[in-house]
Structures are given as structure tokens and as C-alpha cells.
Design a protein around this nucleic acid. Structure first.
Lengths: 232, 232
DNA sequence: CGGCTCCTTGACATCGCTCAAGTGTAGTGG
DNA sequence: CCACTACACTTGAGCGATGTCAAGGAGCCG
């Protein structure tokens, strides 16, 4: 299957290094809105690969709707998910010429793609764009650093606690969480197995900290308790 | 004890937002050399704290000589080391207004400090500086992503294998490694305990993969084997 | 209803942690 | 040069959190 970058290369050969490609007006999602003014928007079905590992890093991506995971496989099939990306989040803004992480749509997703060279060229002319590109990268770094802490030094219970707290915050709802990702995705994000994720969620439900009306729908009963478990 | 940022605030109150402070000529260490042209150089003794957690993020730091660790403490005293920084490496270039990780000198170290506002102001005038700042951040991100993979999905043996391979590469020597950091530092970097680090090193020595003339000096006997163990 | 896929649960194994000695090794002072 | 101390590192024994393997349940869709 063709990845998004490969597809866009066919659609937009003439876009390279021009500062304005197909214009998408009034994007609400860019940290500074002008970044949303260049590039194209594409739709991906649940499960579709947006970026493959080792794809040339030609684009920066912003999630307009849906949820995306970035992931990397190790030799023996183990998988690490680097991040879950939701409305407004950027990905693919990395130092290397090829992407180290693949990106896949967890749900149907709308993604805005900006040519990297175009973005860097625009940054060369406009300091605000340069600063916006730096912000995107620095935010990814911040998220990655927090995640390292979790992976290196937290117990299964603390990992799940942190994860649910993070998801609640990102959804702007403190009592109700919708999980677009599977238990396996959560496990690969937290460095656990699917069984441990499942057991720990059950444990939190038994303790009355959360309720699980369905496996993808979490009600936070004792928010304080969950925050305490995060052990930051 | 006063951290470096606090000290520099006293030394250099007049520097803020001026593009050239105390000039250090001919720095060989910046990715683009002009970044090395602003700021001051300070010396730190082994064990000194350069940045404290939650310090305001006023400076960007570059290691001129010596080794530095960035670290963060969790509630119950557990510690995660985010990175080991050596000659030429930058740290403190983060998204937030306060530093999330402390930085401490592992050996006596010479550090070049650049005022962040000064750097960003210069970036607003010179696209090459803006690009250099982005590069620094993107490199940190790359290192952090690789490290997440290690923390989340590698066994103790693979972690030690990856660590030794990384150190060998960074020292430009493929047969001999000098470890400036303690076993506890290595443990906190890899998400292990000191005992497991020690045991795993011994195990590699018994297997003939490495030799340990002293605990801080590693001879790589079978580089291929070590690389295979890294499981990337 | 059958056949998916995803999730949960149980029994057991194991890797890495905890606790507790014991062994260097470097530095200090006599 | 030799004690003495302090600190870093190693090693052993036992345990426990998490992984592995296997079975079964729940929801979904044709």
C-alpha cells in the first residue's frame, strides 16, 4: 500500500519549495495559524498507514480529526508506541531525513500535510513560522521526556493511572474518557502486555477508582486517587 | 546552593535581550558556529547542580568538556536520567518556561550558557540561527525517542548492550569505552537497578563479549555480538 | 446463528527487584 | 609504607511484579 507521503508526491509534484500550495483556509489547529495555510488535507481509514518507518521525511502532519499512533517495531516483533495524536497535534517533525517511527490511523482520520521543505523555506522568510516550527518540535520533545519517565520508573498501576489522567486532560473532560485505541495499543504505549493492562484496569474498577461501562469507555470516579497513582 | 542559571542572573543582568553578550571566539562545538558566539562559559565541579528541576528556563547550555546528566525525581525517590551529555551536546532547550529535568555535572565540566531570549531574538533576525535552534531541539527529540524504545521494550541485557554501543559510538572508539558515570547513573538511565546493571556487565564479561579491566573501563571484545544484543 | 475480533481471567513461569553481605579501590593521615 | 575509612561495586538468596500460555466471554457484523 502507498503511504500518504508517496501518494502526496504524486498529487503534488509541483508544490515543492513553493511557499503556498493548495490553501486550506482558516485552520483552527495550528499553534500559529499560518502554518495551516499551506499544504493539503487527506483522509485515512481506520488502520491505514500514514507514514511507514524509514519513509523519507518529506512532510509534517497535523491531525485535523481522528486519532493517530506513532510506532516502531523491534527485531523480534515487539512494538513501542511513541505517542497518540489527536485533534491539533503535529507529528513527523524530526531531525532525520527519514522517519524513525511509522504513523497509523487508529480511527478514521483527517490529516493535514505540509511539505517540510516548503515549511522550512517559509521559516527562512518569516521568523514567526520559524518559531512555530520550533514550538511543534519542542512540544513533541516535552511529551517524549514525560513518557520516558513513565516507561523507566513507574509500576503498571502508575502507568495506567498516568495514562488515564493524560487522556482525561487531553479530552478536556475530567469524568469521562473515550479510548479510541485497543488494549494492545495501550500496552505498547506503556511498555506492558495486554494482559497486564486488562488486569490493572479491572483492579482500578474493583477499587472503585474508575468504572468501565464498556471496555473503551472509562468513567473516572475518584480523580484525586487516579492523580495520586500517577506518581509524578 | 546556587544553580548556574541563578548565578549567571547575578553575573549578567545586563545581557538580557542583547544579541551579543560576552563573546567566546571560535567555538568548535555549535552545529552552526554562530550560536557559540554569544553567552558565557562556566566551570562546574563533579557533582555540582547546573540546573535544578523547576528552574526558570532562562538559558540553553552546551557542554564544552566533561559529562553532564539530566535527571528527574519521582515522588518516592526513584530517579530517571534523561540523557548523558558530552562535548558538543546541548541541553535545556525545552518548550516550557521552567526546566522539567535537573542537570548535574558527572565529572568536572565546562559549560557554555546562552541566554534563551537572546538566542530567540537572534533567531528572529537570522534564519540560520533559527534553524540551528530547531536542530538542537530536534536532535534531543531523536535521542529521547530512541531512548523510549529502549525503556519500554528492551530486556536488561539489550539495554546494557544498547548503552555500551551508544557510548562506544559517542566516544568514537569501537574497542574501548571510558564510563564517566557510576553504576547507579547507568541504572537510572536504563530503568534498571544498580544490581541488575552490575550482574549484566559481569554476564557480558563471562560471555567474552566485553572485558572490564576496571569497573569504569570497558573493552569491547566482540562488537558484532554487542550490536546484535541491542535488538534495534 | 456462526465467525470474527477484542477483551478478560486463570495458572504458572521468570526476569528483575529487594535485602543483605562481602570485595575491591581510592583517598587520608599517621 | 601501612592502617583506616569511605564509597563504589559485586555477588548471593529469595521474592514478587509482570510476562507467558491457554481458555473462555462479550460484542459486532454478515
Amino acid at each position: 500500500m502507498l503511504t500518504a507521503a508517496a501518494t502526496a508526491r504524486n498529487i503534488l509534484p509541483e508544490m515543492k519549495d513553493r511557499s503556498a500550495g493548495i490553501v486550506v483556509k482558516g485552520s483552527r489547529f495550528a499553534p500559529s495559524n499560518f502554518i495551516g495555510l499551506m499544504g493539503i488535507t487527506m483522509h485515512f481509514e481506520r488502520g491505514a498507514e500514514i507514514v511507514a518507518e524509514e519513509d523519507p521525511a518529506e512532510y509534517v502532519y497535523q491531525v485535523i480529526s481522528g486519532t493517530v499512533r506513532t510506532c516502531k517495531l523491534l527485531s523480534n516483533g515487539r512494538r513501542q508506541i511513541g505517542a497518540f495524536l489527536m485533534e491539533g497535534d503535529y507529528f513527523g517533525m524530526e531531525a532525520r531525513a527519514v522517519h524513525c517511527f511509522a504513523a497509523e490511523a487508529i480511527t478514521d482520520a483527517t490529516i493535514h500535510m505540509i511539505n517540510r521543505n516548503t515549511a522550512f523555506a517559509a521559516a527562512g522568510r518569516d521568523p514567526e513560522i520559524a518559531r512555530a516550527l520550533w514550538d511543534i518540535t519542542a512540544r513533541s520533545l516535552d511529551a517524549c521526556q514525560q513518557h520516558s519517565l513513565l516507561l523507566g520508573r513507574k509500576t503498571a498501576l502508575e502507568k495506567i493511572g498516568s495514562f488515564l489522567t493524560e487522556m482525561a486532560e487531553r479530552q478536556g473532560s475530567h469524568a469521562e474518557i473515550d479510548l479510541p485505541m485497543s488494549r494492545q495499543d495501550i500496552a505498547d504505549y506503556l511498555g506492558l502486555t495486554i494482559e497486564t493492562v486488562s488486569r490493572t484496569m479491572t483492579q482500578l474498577e474493583c477499587a472503585g477508582t474508575i468504572a468501565l461501562p464498556t471496555s473503551r469507555h472509562v468513567l473516572v470516579k475518584r480523580r484525586q486517587e487516579l492523580a495520586r497513582l500517577s506518581a509524578c
